[in-house]
């Protein structure tokens, strides 16, 4: 085993352990605090109040945090691998915003219940348009500035479209409901949410995992990768669809949660020698760690009891942490952004 391989293995094991520990904490934390023992007894048996709280309220939420965080971590690593660009992230490409357009349209006009498959499907369609559009615009060279500018434009367009849907919402309650849902939260999510989103997450992971080796070859650029036997067009299509499936389904059940895809790969990249293939697994695990930690965080921060929302919104927390992080990365990559092709 090379040094990068053994440090990668150690990292993956540590992150997996961390997910388990955080998951147990996540089952304990909430308005009714439980001890680790109560939480585990409630999870694996028993039929008291603790069992109901753990199994019906906190378990779906915890599992969704793991699945969504992992999906965003992998989606970020995959987009970065495809575009050879450490600043690539679904939220910067307007993907969650565009998914929100699709999903909020369905919800605002009552076309379907909030836990029907129509919501993730509409979200996926929105995400597909934005990521597909971005990859098409960024094109073969995928320069940093073109990619980010196109992402900015698509995100703005999606934001405007969502605002339009809010403006035209049939009732103010519908508008308020969508506005809060858009901020991103895992509060009060049920097993139904888990069931409608999971098939799309699994499909997303499979599509992205199949292309992991291609990301490594793409470090040489698209022509060299193609000459090595990578079907670049197919890889691009599979990544676009894979990311759209994951982001669309996430947004459909949890609203807009950003920046996990940017932060997670960055935190683990050095440990695996910057290898865009080897970064994928730890980035996936790190994404789960980050989101479950953030979701524990929103439950620990006391919110104003008179406000409409009981908790700080999860999407707000990830953006508050993610955006300064992003700015710091731009600061470091300034030289690349100053016109030099990436």
């Amino acid at each position: 085993m090379t040094r990068a391989e053994s440090s990668g293995l150690r990292l993956n094991l540590t992150l997996a352990l961390l997910i388990i520990v955080l998951a147990v904490i996540s089952l304990m934390v909430g308005p009714a605090a439980l001890s680790p023992r109560e939480a585990l007894v409630g999870l694996f048996g028993g039929d008291g109040a603790a069992a109901i709280i753990v199994r019906d309220i906190r378990l779906p939420r915890t599992l969704l945090a793991i699945l969504i965080g992992a999906t965003f971590g992998l989606a970020g690593a995959a987009l970065q691998g495809l575009l050879r660009n450490p600043l690539a992230e679904p939220a910067l490409f307007g993907a969650p915003q565009a998914a929100s357009v699709g999903a909020s349209f369905v919800i605002a006009y009552g076309l379907a219940g909030a836990t029907s498959f129509a919501v993730p499907v509409a979200g996926i369609a929105g995400a597909l348009v934005s990521i597909g559009g971005l990859v098409a615009i960024a094109g073969r060279r995928a320069s940093l500035s073109v990619t980010l500018l196109a992402g900015l434009a698509l995100a703005s367009l999606a934001g405007a479209a969502t605002a339009l849907i809010l403006n035209l919402a049939p009732t103010p309650y519908a508008a308020l409901e969508i506005a809060f849902w858009l901020l991103g939260s895992l509060e009060d999510r049920s097993v139904d949410h888990l069931l409608i989103a999971t098939p799309f997450f699994v499909a997303s992971w499979l599509l992205l995992a199949l292309n992991v080796q291609a990301f490594r070859a793409l470090t040489l650029g698209e022509d060299a990768a193609a000459s090595l036997g990578v079907d670049v067009g197919r890889t691009r299509l599979m990544v676009v669809i894979g990311v759209a499936l994951g982001v669309g389904a996430s947004v459909a059940v949890a609203g807009s949660i950003g920046f996990i895809g940017l932060v997670a790969p960055h935190l683990v990249r050095r440990a695996v020698g910057s290898d865009p293939a080897r970064v994928c697994l730890p980035a996936t695990l790190m994404g789960a760690v980050l989101l479950i930690a953030a979701d524990i965080g929103v439950r620990l921060v006391p919110a104003n009891p008179n406000a409409t929302a009981v908790e700080i919104k999860l999407g707000v927390v990830t953006a508050l942490i993610g955006v300064p992080f992003f700015l710091a990365m731009i600061f470091r990559e300034r030289r690349l952004l100053d016109g030099a092709p990436s």
Binding site: A4, R216, T219, L220, G221, A224, S227, G273, D275
Partner: peptide, 20 residues
């Protein structure tokens, strides 16, 4: 095929690049 410009997008170790 060795394209123009000797492009390397990620700071991977030389041995890993050659192994591509």
């Amino acid at each position: 095929y060795l394209p123009q410009g000797h492009v390397f997008h990620w700071p991977m170790p030389v041995a890993d690049v050659v192994a591509l």
